[in-house]
Design a protein around this nucleic acid. Structure first.
Lengths: 370, 370
DNA sequence: CTGAAAGCGCTTACAG
DNA sequence: CTGAAAGCGCTTACAG
């Protein structure tokens, strides 16, 4: 390792011993480059950072030395001295990075961050409030500039100090609780209402609600939209048709199959699936019992192959890419100094008609399960 | 801001002025806590890091002070002093975080990293070799402990110095070039061969190949598997039936539609789609022209709703979660000191029969495009 | 058991 | 145009 050396040393040490520097296990520092180039570390710093006002000769000497030593600056060190905040990192906390909805959010944030030269650290929280806190603390301790979060927990006051201390923070898909912060949400309630009204318009009165974990804000909002639609149509809510806490394709499929086995005069004639994985489970139940042409289905959130099923799956589509993009914009505004009141953006959902939601209620015989 | 203070100051300064510390915009440091607790920063450091050998009294004083100031350690600073490598970060470079295949890889790496207390920074490279280098450099400059990469570029020798300097590095899905490193790959060639042999066994002889960007290693391997199967069946490759560089659902759909319009004696009776988005495009083309029951289709990589299409889509499934998991294991072995020769793991693909791949070749009339 | 000093690699103020 | 000094917040050797 090159040690501290004074000017005198430098004049006698014009180059590295063959193979002496840039060796495996070591990494050249500003000081190594300065020593090799015969200048001060400050001059190297200037050249490396592209600051103006270094003579051509020294610039070239430094550049040659840096190249020879394969020098790369240590951003960790520079950010430390620069004053706390790290070298351009964003934290992104999602429910599940493998869910296509969040994949699109991630992609949008990643695209926007790239344009700004920021790296993104994305993590799945898996609906675990404890993990949410741990990950948030870990990301903050790593010095992220900002945090985009789909929260898993129910109390975000623990972030208040951080935000006051300058952390930029935006919530996507779900709002924070006990904390005032920027949000980007979909029209969950009105979108769900539109979905159910669409089924009502087709003549349905026994419409089942298949919901995600009841604790989740979006699941609650969509349930309210369901209730709104039924209420304004003068239809009472039947508890038996309201299934919640469906947290996977499999549980959703099972729940839907249970509904399909109800006596014909009690079974639903239409299903509203309030989330993408739930929609997959519901569709699978219908297909498995060959009821996909007899029982209507509308899903919340779009599916990749929804148009190719028979019938095509009618959905209220969200725009997760737009949600991620807008979240990044709000975050950047904070990074750029906006310190005003919290901003709240809403991304509209859109009904896409493909067939499954337009099936009218009709007679059907219950088929035995396989 | 609390300034450096000597022992004398401390005795007169037993607590913070009301609202004096922990204020918005500032963040308590070791020194602040030390000052408030009336101890040296080293003692605070010991308590914060859970080192043994601090008296109960001081421990409690420090803990109280830390709580009062809402102290959180700056991992950036500690890692700097600790010697370079950062506070537990993994870099994950993927083709596209929004593609479900890579979403599953991401989820696996994320799960494994969480168990180890590591954060993951995932980024889409979007098949851009320049971005690959930039992102790799940026992540390394940020001090990641290791890198898991689905490479976009064609020369990875630029990473050799980093690896020699101690960077743990694993390539997933595609191998590196001009670099010896750990890899986790699927059985692309034999899997593709199995897919095409399955079609041959059903009687097909005019089997089209719909391929991803030809530059990509997996696309090349799958093309070779296709060629293997045809060769061993004594079927010559018809260039007209080999379509490559399909980089999206839309281009794949268009390409497939082109094939479907060939004269009946030249058109393919079966399609092999060598990637998930390509399979979606091909299926869409078949469905659009109502040929899904007349022309066979086998896809490489599974699709979420493949079982619900009519016919179900026969695929050679990969196991992206396993690929990510194994990649993480190899990386951890490096982090734990393994310095032996590079390791190469293969994750088997699996043929899943669902209907579309079992359609025999038959007569058909070409339908006009809509 | 506790602490003063030096240093991680870099940048911020200052001098020349 | 160039550089010596001090410091970012923390930890590593050392002393007591």
């Amino acid at each position: 390792m090159v040690q501290a050396m004074t000017r005198e040393h430098l004049t006698t040490l014009s180059g590295p011993a063959p193979g002496g520097w840039g060796r495996a296990g070591s990494r050249a520092t500003l000081r190594d480059v300065a020593a090799l180039a015969g200048v001060s570390i400050k001059t190297v710093s200037r050249v490396v950072n592209g600051e103006i006002g270094v003579s051509e000769e020294l610039t070239e000497r430094v550049e040659r030395a840096a190249r020879q030593l394969d020098y790369r600056p240590n951003l960790t060190a520079s950010s430390l001295r620069r004053g706390g905040r790290g070298p351009g990192m964003l934290g992104l906390m999602l429910e599940d990075v493998a869910n296509p909805f969040f994949g699109a959010v991630h992609r949008a944030v990643d695209d926007a961050a790239s344009e700004r030269g920021l790296a993104v650290m994305a993590t799945s929280l898996n609906e675990d409030p404890v993990k949410e806190r741990e990950v948030a603390r870990a990301l903050i301790a790593r010095g992220v500039d900002g945090l985009v979060m789909v929260p898993a927990g129910f109390d975000h006051s623990y972030l208040r100090n951080e935000i006051q201390a300058g952390l930029a923070m935006v919530f996507v898909d779900r709002p924070p609780r006990f904390l005032d912060a920027d949000t980007v949400l979909a029209t969950n309630r009105s979108g769900a209402r539109e979905a159910v009204e669409h089924l009502v318009a087709a003549g349905h009165r026994r419409i089942a609600f298949l919901g995600d974990l009841a604790d989740i804000a979006t699941a609650g909002d969509r349930m309210e939209g369901y209730a709104d639609a039924l209420r304004s149509a003068g239809i009472g809510i039947e508890e038996r048709l309201v299934l919640r806490d469906l947290d996977s394709r499999a549980t959703a499929q099972k729940a839907a199959e249970g509904l399909l086995q109800l006596p014909a005069d009690q079974a639903p004639t239409a299903l509203f699936a309030s989330q993408n994985l739930v929609t997959i489970g519901a569709a699978r139940a219908l297909h498995r019992h060959d009821l996909q042409h007899l029982i209507a289905l509308v899903g919340f959130d779009d599916l990749d192959l929804a148009d190719m099923l028979d019938p095509g799956v009618t959905v209220v589509a969200q725009d997760p890419y737009a949600m991620g993009r807008v979240a990044a914009e709000l975050l950047f505004a904070r990074l750029d100094g906006y310190a005003g009141p919290s901003q709240h953006r809403t991304i509209a959902t859109r009904l896409i008609i493909r067939g499954s939601g337009e099936i009218p209620p009709g007679e059907r015989r219950v088929r035995p399960l396989d």
